[in-house]
Amino acid sequence: MQVFPFVVVAWILGVGLYGVVTSRHLVHQIICLIVVQSSTYVLLLGVGYVTGAVAPYYFDVPNHTPAVDPVVQACALTDVVVEAAVTALLLSFAIQAYKRFGTLDPQELAELKG
């Protein structure tokens, strides 16, 4: 349990990268990129966890109860929303690539010139 979450993070990262490298369709590649990004969210939250602590909201627990780290949660929160918009931008690039070159295979797209 001491290192298991970080091993899972490495697994998700590796699987996502494998998908990106061996993909034959741009949309499949973008979805694997989403998986790679999700591994960073798990890593952020795993680093800040404190055993036996509550969520850092003092609305219904008394003040100064031990809580998990709120800074990494703030990072991960804005991270999730912003990466979705960037993914939408990538998908619009994929649409334009298809309009212009007629193919969505990244290994064929790599050979096009001009």
């Binding site: 602590a53 979705a84 994929a94």
Partner: peptide, 30 residues
């Protein structure tokens, strides 16, 4: 379960609803 309800709300609305909508629209276009 990692005691982060804020990130849960974000991930639920984005990862389960909005991203599949956007990807399905792209697939329909292609």
């Amino acid at each position: 379960v990692f005691q982060a309800p804020d990130v849960t709300l974000s991930e639920l609305t984005i990862g389960a609803v909005l991203l599949p909508i956007v990807i399905l629209l792209t697939l329909a276009k292609v």
